[in-house]
Amino acid sequence: MWGLDAPFYFYLLLLIPILIAVYLWNTLWKKKKINEFGSGSYLKRLAPEASTTSKPLTKLILLAVVVFALIIALVNPKFGTKIETVKRQGVDIVFAIDVSKSMLAEDMAPNRLGKSKQLATQIINSLASDRIGIVGYAGSAFPMLPITTDYGMAKMYVQDMNTDMVSSMGTALSQAIEVGSNYFDDPKTSKVMILISDGEDHGEGINDAIAIAKDKGIKIITIGVGTPNGGQIPIKQNGKIVDYKKDTDGNNVITKLNETTLKEIAQGTGGIFMYGSNTNEVIQIVDKTLQKIEKTDFESQQIADFQSQFQWFIALALLLLIIDSLVLERRTAWMKKLNLFNEK
């Protein structure tokens, strides 16, 4: 088995035909100038040791091979010496993140949604071999990213979440739990849902959703973002606050953290509730909670142990450069004897 570190360096191979073209042009130019100066036996008497063909061509071949070897060294071919079977162990985790309008409240910096993104990203950074998925929800819930081990992709999806993703108003916690529970299709895996929300629920069916989670063996960790005193929901244009969301009576809406609902969900599924104000504390608690959960064997992977081979090509290039430095433009005695190009 083999592989290449940087195959795009193969484009540099175009330098070799350019090098040959320059050599041909230079050869023709020299020949033209020599013919203008003199010809035949007259030139041989003036420069009897000059090599008109063999030495320049030899140096060209050496230089071309040097360039080729250095390019291959940049590409860094790798050859596999053995194959190892690696088993992954971890937990299936689904992040359910609230993107309702109340998450724009700025009682947590930069706002509740921004804090939720920060929490989710930092938790993902702390994971090792767990599989993760993402669900977004507001007045309804929708799947965003199926179960995967691609943490980079997951963090990108988290950062792209915004309050315009769902047109329906409200916060349907029950739908978030139901949609998230559908991600867990393997009854043998350990299952965790991390629900990040301000807890404001305008839907029904929380008890039914909790029952579904319990039936599937899903522990739900709830993280509350927001404060009990609450905050107003700003309306912004070009990044500046122009007004605040108002109710039907024209009063500014005050949205508050509803920890009661979040605690009910966590306790009903054997999970835990925590405040999301201190990111480091949240990460530590989540990490300790996950460590207590039995890990599941995921799919086995075969990994080839590749060895870099660039050093051989660098060594070849250095050797040829040394040889090139020993090849002079004039004919030497040993080259006369070899007479590789049948020169008279």
Score class of each variant (00 low, 15 high):
residue 33 K to M: 06
residue 59 K to A: 10
residue 45 R to K: 08
residue 70 L to Q: 00
residue 35 N to T: 10
residue 63 L to N: 09
residue 19 L to H: 01
residue 35 N to S: 15
residue 27 T to N: 10
residue 47 A to R: 08
residue 23 Y to I: 03
residue 43 L to G: 00
residue 61 I to C: 12
residue 61 I to E: 10
residue 50 A to C: 05
residue 60 L to D: 09
residue 56 P to R: 03
residue 26 N to I: 00
residue 21 A to E: 01
residue 62 L to V: 11
residue 34 I to D: 12
residue 58 T to S: 13
residue 66 V to N: 05
residue 50 A to I: 10
residue 49 E to H: 11
residue 38 G to M: 07
residue 27 T to D: 09
residue 38 G to Q: 04
residue 35 N to M: 11
residue 20 I to R: 02
residue 42 Y to A: 04
residue 48 P to I: 01
residue 61 I to K: 10
residue 55 K to Y: 13
residue 72 I to K: 12
residue 23 Y to Q: 02
residue 26 N to A: 13
residue 37 F to W: 06
residue 49 E to C: 01
residue 64 A to Q: 12
residue 22 V to F: 08
residue 70 L to E: 02
residue 31 K to D: 15
residue 66 V to R: 03
residue 57 L to E: 05
residue 26 N to T: 06
residue 58 T to E: 11
residue 25 W to P: 07
residue 43 L to T: 07
residue 44 K to T: 07
residue 36 E to P: 01
residue 50 A to R: 12
residue 20 I to F: 04
residue 18 I to F: 02
residue 70 L to Y: 02
residue 40 G to Y: 00
residue 47 A to Y: 14
residue 22 V to W: 04
residue 47 A to C: 06
residue 28 L to E: 12
residue 64 A to C: 15
residue 22 V to A: 11
residue 72 I to P: 13
residue 47 A to E: 12
residue 69 A to L: 09
residue 43 L to N: 00
residue 58 T to C: 10
residue 19 L to K: 01
residue 54 S to G: 04
residue 36 E to F: 05
residue 61 I to D: 08
residue 54 S to P: 00
residue 28 L to F: 15
residue 24 L to Q: 12
residue 57 L to A: 14
residue 70 L to P: 01
residue 33 K to D: 07
residue 31 K to L: 15
residue 57 L to T: 14
residue 55 K to T: 14
residue 59 K to Y: 10
residue 71 I to E: 01
residue 32 K to F: 06
residue 56 P to G: 02
residue 72 I to L: 15
residue 66 V to L: 03
residue 51 S to V: 06
residue 63 L to Q: 06
residue 21 A to R: 02
residue 47 A to D: 11
residue 25 W to M: 13
residue 37 F to R: 02
residue 59 K to S: 11
residue 38 G to L: 08
residue 28 L to A: 14
residue 28 L to P: 01
residue 44 K to N: 11
residue 56 P to M: 02
residue 47 A to K: 09
residue 23 Y to V: 01
residue 49 E to T: 09
residue 19 L to C: 07
residue 66 V to A: 04
residue 26 N to M: 08
residue 35 N to L: 14
residue 56 P to A: 02
